[in-house]
Each structure stands twice: as C-alpha cells, then as structure tokens.
Design a binder for these strands. Structure first.
Lengths: 254, 254
DNA sequence: ACCCTTTATAGTCAGAGTGACTATAAAGAA
DNA sequence: TTCTTTATAGTCACTCTGACTATAAAGGGT
C-alpha cells in the first residue's frame, strides 16, 4: 500500500493478478466430516475435483464473492447464506499455483448443518459432498487449502462456539458432541462433555418446556439451540495426543 | 479457482487487481508496544503515516514480498529476516480501500526484539516506531489492520511460544513477562507467571552455568533462551475481563 | 411380557492447574 | 546501615478436569 506508485500510473502495470476465492465448506454427516467439492468442467485440471470458488467481480469484496459462490453451489437461500459464518482462512499466493496465469486466492471456510445433495451450479460439471479424509488429489493447491481449513476448524472449536454451526437450529448435546468427535477425530467422555458445555455461559440454551427428540433408540435427549456467546470461556480443549499412534476406536490414550 | 475461465482467455479480463502486502511490525520498548510506521511520500494520503508494505513483484509470493519490504524498511540483514516469524493475518479486499485503483492487500504481522531506529528506506519519507496505542488515523484502512494485528498477537501469546520473538536471544523471565503485560495491557503476578512458563515444556531453557544479568537494580535474574517448542501446553491464558462489555473485534484467531 | 441394548443424565473422586498471597535472597541506592 | 527493587521459593484454597459409577428412559428381540 505504501510501495512505489507512480504519480501517473497505469493500472495494468501494477495489476497483473487475478483474485479468486476458494471455499472449504464442511458438514458432518453420518459421523464423518464432509467437504463440498466440484468437478472441474474445463482446463486446467479438467475432470479433477476442486474446492468451489471463483473470480472476484470488479467491485466485489472477497467475502461477498464467497457468499455468491456458495449460493451458486449449494442452492441455499439468501437468508441462510447471509447469516452464515464465513471464516477467512488465509491467502495463497504461490506464483505457480495456477498454470494459466498469476492468481491469488483468498480461502474461506464455512460450516453447514447436514444438507441435501447440492445442485451442481455454475460451471461445475457436478458438485457433491466428499468424506474430508478421502478426497483424492485435488486441483491446484486445494489439498493444502483443505488441510489448512480442517486444522483451523478444529482449533476454532476449542475456544469458539462455532460447533453449533454444524448443527440444525435445535440439537441434542449428543449431536454437538458428535461434531467435536468428528472434526477432532477423537472420542470424548459424554458426561464430561455435557458438564463443560452446560457450564460455558451462552454456548447453548435449553429449548423451553421439556421437548425431547424422538426417532432414535435410547432415552430421548433434551433439545438445545445455540446461545448468544461467540467465544467459549473456559475453552474446550481437545485431549492432547501424548504419543504418535493413530487413535483407535477405544479412544483414551495411555 | 474453479470459476468460469474461458478456454481462450485474456489475462487482463480476469486481472483487474493489484496485490500488495502490508506489515504490522511490532516491538516492545520501554514497556510499551510499538509498531513500525512509514510516512507516505506521495498521494494518496501523502504525509499520513501508514504500515510499511508494497506491491508484489510479478513472480513473487506474498511472504517473500513481505520479507523484502521488511528488509528495506528495517535494514535488517537477510539472516535475521529469513529466520523471522511472519504471521499472515488476513487479506483486505474492500473495493474502495485504495482510491487509485482496485488493490487487494495481504497483511502480515511480525515481532522483533527492540532495535535501533529504522532507516527510512524505499519511497518512505521517513520510518519510525510509534506507540501502538497512540497512532493517529493512518492511511487507507491501516487502522483496521493494525487493530486486527494487535488482537491476533495478543491471542497467539496465549497458546504459542511467540512471545520470545519479542526478546533478544537471551532474556530474563522478567523481560518475557513484560512482553505479555505490554501486549495484553494487564499486570501479571510474577511468581505465578514464572511457575507457568517454567512448567511449559520447551518454552524456555535456562542458559547453562549460572550467568546472571547485570545493570539493573534488584537481584540479578537468570537468563533463558527460547526453547524448541512452538505451541504452549498448557496455554497461558490472559485473565478474562469480568466486565460485561461484548467482545471487541472477534479476537482469537489461530 | 421380559430382558437387553442403547442413549441420556446425575453424581463422585482424586489430581492437576490457578490465583492470591507470604517469605526469603540479592543486588543498588539513600 | 537501611531502604528499595527485583528475583525466586513456597503455601493454600479453590476450580477445573479426566476417569469413573450409577440411574433413567426409550426401542428391539425373543
């Protein structure tokens, strides 16, 4: 911003860049973290899967572009899109990240409750949810972006109330715990999780009256909705892995 | 990245943007947080103070541009610059943030130990350290960037070993505590701070033998250097403000 | 019916971590 | 010397946490 800028400047002399947004849109379905991918309809990387995204319009802010692309890919209404939490991840600027030309991309992460299959909108040949751990090699540097997004989401769950964004408007504590377990890839103790969530002011609030969820087996659970807090005090720290062994189904390290 | 890109494309049709980096370079001097600012030598905002920064070169990654600009402004050698921790903050994309043309800026934060006055390099009329809390209105949206940077640094001190970047190679625990107190704007209990720092594995390591700092008044302190850890377990949480004021600009970001 | 499995919820208990505090040591200054 | 300043050691009560046990309320199978 304070760099050499000639008095009579030629925008193109300083504007050899295209700017895009890339979106890592996550959801939890069937106890697995899923990410929305689109199949590329043209070169480069035609036929490869990629994060949804696209070029900024000439007078558009990056977050607006992200919401626009998200609406195109998911078919969500403007109300849902407008209220959605979009987290700017970081910006990827490797000169060779796009073989066509110099492209700088601002990456965002978004969290959605489980939704029906997306409609393949825009230029994408198709769009669908993928298990976030089983995506093949993606186009461009999207493997890196996806990994960074997963890391960031996992970290934000610790000290923010973001986990409720993965849940529908009303949810049980079991569903909320499932979000943590899925994103972190660990098992948590149910009574302890419950104690910490309920003692964090403003994280969740009980739905009035005693309505209870039906449909599953086991005792019906009380329903909650997201509270008005945005930060989590005290934080809900994930159990630190003390060794390098991948977590088995038994959980509980050591 | 996956947006409409015509087969026979014209780069300029998708490249109406200039890309810059902006740097929030912090140091602690005399128990105050200071930030490096440059006085703008030309329009727009001629004579206003701004964060150092500049345009990306055609085949340069943003972090390389940030290190290049930092070297120009501070006169630090390439060794020091190369080892420096540069934290990408976020990217600012408001279409009107630069009156000249469409400029997207990637902001970085850097932490330095106390240094002599910078040399005014490059196009800057002059460059100097400012008390981070007493900067006048800065050029462009740099007030916002500076505030975001301060927030981020404060949050990172909680769960990373970054605080040692503010200190010289060998430092006392009192100096390290000064960093926390200055960035957070609070006073900490000295014995408790000591206990937590020393119990965090890999945060600091004592300098061998019993060398002690001279020059000040009071009992000489043992010297430490930065340990090999990068994350802080357990985290060193800042005392939560008990007042009911709603959270400021979305603190904590990992 | 009955038991069995599943999930939710309540509670207990020991240990780690933390905030507030007191005490002692080692330097320079008055 | 005495005072002031800074460093370091230690105490103590309280909270938070992980690991665990117990009980409640549903559905499924035989």
């Amino acid at each position: 911003m304070s760099a050499p800028a000639p008095e009579g400047y030629d925008p193109h002399a300083y504007a050899p860049f295209a700017v895009t947004v890339d979106l890592a849109v996550f959801t939890v379905r069937e106890a697995r973290l899923h990410v929305l991918l689109v199949e590329r309809g043209q070169e480069p990387h035609r036929g490869r899967w990629a994060l949804p995204g696209g070029f900024l319009l000439p007078r558009e802010a990056a977050e607006d572009a992200a919401r626009r692309e998200l609406a195109e890919e998911t078919g969500l209404g403007p109300g849902a899109i407008g209220a959605l939490h979009l987290e700017q991840l970081r910006t990827y600027t490797d000169p060779d990240r796009d073989p066509r030309m110099r492209v700088v991309s601002v990456a965002y992460a978004a969290l959605l409750p489980d939704l029906p299959e997306p409609r393949g909108g825009g230029d994408a040949a198709s769009a669908r949810w993928w298990d976030a751990g089983s995506t093949g090699p993606l186009a461009f540097d999207h493997d890196t972006i996806l990994a960074d997004a997963h890391d960031r989401i996992g970290a934000k769950l610790e000290y923010s109330c973001l986990a409720t964004a993965f849940c529908p408007a009303e949810f049980t504590l079991g569903e909320l715990q499932q979000v943590y377990e899925t994103v972190w890839g660990v098992e948590l103790d149910r009574p302890n999780f419950r104690r910490k969530v309920l003692s964090a002011p403003g994280f969740v609030q009980p739905v009035d009256g005693p309505p209870r969820r039906t449909g599953g087996r086991g005792k019906p659970a009380a329903l909650y909705r997201a509270g008005d807090a945005t930060a989590l005090h005290p934080p809900l720290l994930r159990p630190q892995r003390t060794d390098a062994s991948p977590s088995g189904p038994e959980g509980r390290d050591r």
